[in-house]
Every structure is written in structure tokens, then in C-alpha cells.
Simulated assay, not measured.
Amino acid sequence: MSTQHDAPAPHSKTPSASPSPLAILPDAPARAEKWRNPYRALPRVRWVVQLAYVAFLLLVAWQFVRFHDAVLGDGPISVARPPAVEAFLPIAALVAAKRFFLTRYWDVVHPAGLTIFLAAIATAFVARKAFCSWVCPVGTISRALEWLGRKTLWRRRWPAVPRWLDLPLSAVKYLLLAFFLWTVVVMMPLEAIEGFMQAPYNLAADAKMLELFAHPSATMAAVLGGLVALSLVVKHAWCRWLCPYGALLGLASFLSPVSVRRDPDACNDCRACTRACPNEIQVHAKLRVLSTECTGCMSCVAACSTPDCLGVTRKGARAWSPWLVPAATLAVMLGFWAVARATGFWEASVPPEVYRVAYRILGIG
């Protein structure tokens, strides 16, 4: 209601009442209403995308179990092997990637694994480490454990890991990455790569991994239990400290033109962005988030309490939409899959009976 309506009519003998504070400012109700972040739905959409990938991988796992059982049987193998199971063979993909860059020959044993490996690296170039936060199933499990810890242990606030401890522990994944890069990329000659790729172990690596998780040893069960317990105390402990895959994507993200950018003139120093960051990056103290630990989850942007404070790549109202980060990630992943599928570089060209021979040589089952 405008102030004109609140003012007494001219020559009125009725005494005027004192104007209310809201009557002084015509737009006071709009100003009193808290600003609603247009990107607050990002975390919920991220859950949808992550759970969709988990559901897909569970379907892949079920299909592979059926294939595995058919290979172990004596009858004809009528169940198709799902190519996407090769996503869980990053070491084989790294070996195949070196062979591809040396010879220009695509891997015929695990072609989908090489496709997914290169697609994940490509996402780091265009959208930082968004593969980790939007696609990777381990990232989804880590996020679920963070949610569980927040609901059961840290209802008020997660305990922050001191920087003097976080930094050296974060270096562990880079040491693991350095070991694999040194072993495969530097020290492994082409002849050794060819021998490894044709070996029965490489052919049945997915079956060996299935049996490892289906029948875990006491040591493996203790390690997995310890990681679960640690993730309830430390946000994304595996991703932050131990994952060499994430370390590789973090290094590739240095070449990405995309980053979260903060406008200090619009910032009110509420620090909601820093509290929302799963890797505890001090977003509120940075002009640009260029850390290799940034996974492009956009949680900081979704938590921001001030308009035009946090954006992508550019400042203020000129910033790119944060929705471009997951959109670019999914577009790259699906694009690599579509091209590989159309050109015959997705499904392995290995006869089913060859798998049966490899399984028997390795004593699987």
C-alpha cells in the first residue's frame, strides 16, 4: 500500500496517527523478505543425477554377475557382458591410454574403460572435477556418508580438519598418482604394455574385482570399514586424501577456464559458502577458487546468501550460470559414449569363450 493512501485527506479534522515504519518505505515488505538464491536447487538436482548413475551402475553390476555366472557354467554363454563395467578398471585404462598415444590403436579388450577414462579427464578440462561430484559412484557414497554423519553425529557443525593436518594428508593421493604414473607412463615399455593387455589377468580383471568384493578378506573388510568410519568423521575422506583418480582430474582442472568467482563488494562475509564446501575450501576468503580440491559441486554457489556474490568464471551479474558445470560434464560423458558406440569403440571384440578360458586359467570361481 502506498504512502499516499496512508496520508490523511486534505482539510480532514480527524487527527492523523503516527505513520508505521513500514509505511515510510513503500517497498519495505520486499526488502524485509530474505533474498532467495535462484541456485538453491543445485544440491537436490545433484542428488538426482548421482543416484541415477548409481542405479545405472547397479544394473550394470547385476548384468555382469549374470555374465560372470554364465562364463563359469558349462553351457553356452548367452548373457552379454556390459561394457560399462570397465569403468571400475582405471589402471587398465591408464595402460591402454599410453598404448593409444604411442600406437594410435584403441584397446579392444576394455574399449569402454578407455573411453570413460578419457571422458573423465575431458570433463576436468571443461568443468573442473565435476566428474567427482556429479558422476563418480564413490563420490556419491562419500556424500551419503557425509549426510549420515551430519544427521547422527554432527547435528550442529562438522569439526574442521586443521590445515596443518589436511595439507599433508591431501598429498597422499598425489603420491599414489605419482606411483601409478611412474610405473605405467614412465617405466612400462610398449612391449610390456602389449604383454599385459593380452594376458589373461587383464582380460578377467573385472571378474577378479567382482570376486574381491563378493568374498572380501578380513583385511579388506577392515580397510573398508575404517574408510566408512573415517568418512563419518571427516567430510569425503577418501576423495580428499586417498583417491589418485581425483588427483589426476585435479591436475587436469588447472587447464579449465571454469572456476567459482567471488565478488568481494557483494560479499557479506556470512561464510555459508565455506561451510557448504565438502572439501572445506575457504571460499569466503578467495577471489577465485582455483584449488585442485574443487569438485565443481556448486554447493558454495547454492548456499550463498547474497545476490551476485558467487558466480562461475565472471563476476556479478555477468557470471555464467552454475548449471553449465553439471550440464557440460554430462554432455562430455554422454558425448564420448555416443561417439564410441557409433564408431565401434565401446564394446569389446572378445569372443565369450575366450573369457571362459581366462577365468579357468586364473582359477576364478
Rank of each mutant, 00 (worst) to 15 (best):
V234D: 01
L58I: 10
R155V: 09
V258S: 00
L181H: 10
L203H: 13
R81P: 11
A331N: 02
S78A: 15
P351T: 14
M298R: 00
I281Q: 07
V283E: 04
A124L: 04
W158R: 10
K235Y: 00
L249C: 02
G226Y: 00
A41L: 13
P21N: 00
A28F: 10
A120K: 10
G113D: 14
S2D: 13
V283D: 09
W241H: 15
F196V: 15
D107L: 09
P137F: 01
L248F: 03
W241D: 11
A214V: 05
K129R: 09
C277F: 02
A30G: 07
T313W: 13
C270I: 12
W241M: 12
L102C: 10
P26K: 03
S2T: 12
V312Y: 03
A207T: 13
T183S: 14
G195L: 15
A120G: 14
A130G: 00
Y174M: 02
P15H: 00
P137E: 05
S20F: 04
L324V: 11
F345Y: 14
A96N: 12
L242Y: 08
A348F: 06
L114A: 09
P307Q: 09
S299T: 12
L72D: 12
V325E: 10
I361C: 06
P322C: 05
E280V: 04
G195N: 14
L227M: 10
V357F: 12
P244T: 00
I121H: 00
V95S: 06
A317N: 05
N268K: 13
V85A: 13
E86R: 11
E146K: 02
A204K: 15
L287V: 15
H236C: 05
P162V: 06
D308A: 04
P351C: 07
S256P: 05
S2I: 11
P43F: 04
T219I: 09
S299I: 10
P159H: 05
F56V: 01
K98Q: 09
V65H: 09
A328Q: 11
A120F: 08
A23C: 07
R81K: 15
V79E: 14
L334K: 02
V95W: 03
L334N: 05
R143Y: 04
A92S: 15
T115S: 07
S305F: 08
A221G: 04
Y53D: 04
C277T: 03
K173I: 03
F254D: 11
A207V: 13
L42F: 05
R262P: 02
W147F: 12
F213W: 09
H110N: 13
A266Q: 07
L42C: 03
E194T: 11
V332H: 07
F125A: 09
W62D: 15
I193L: 07
A87C: 11
A302N: 03
P322Q: 10
F56C: 00
G296M: 07
S20Y: 01
N279Q: 08
A61R: 15
S259R: 12
F336H: 03
L114M: 08
L94F: 07
T123M: 04
P162W: 03
G316Y: 01
A171M: 01
A218H: 13
P26C: 01
A178D: 05
Y245K: 09
R36Y: 02
K235P: 01
S12G: 00
F125K: 08
I193A: 10
A92H: 14
P90A: 02
G113P: 06
L94H: 01
K173W: 01
V283H: 06
K208V: 14
A214C: 00
K235V: 02
P216T: 06
T103F: 00
D269Y: 08
A70C: 12
A7S: 08
L251D: 04
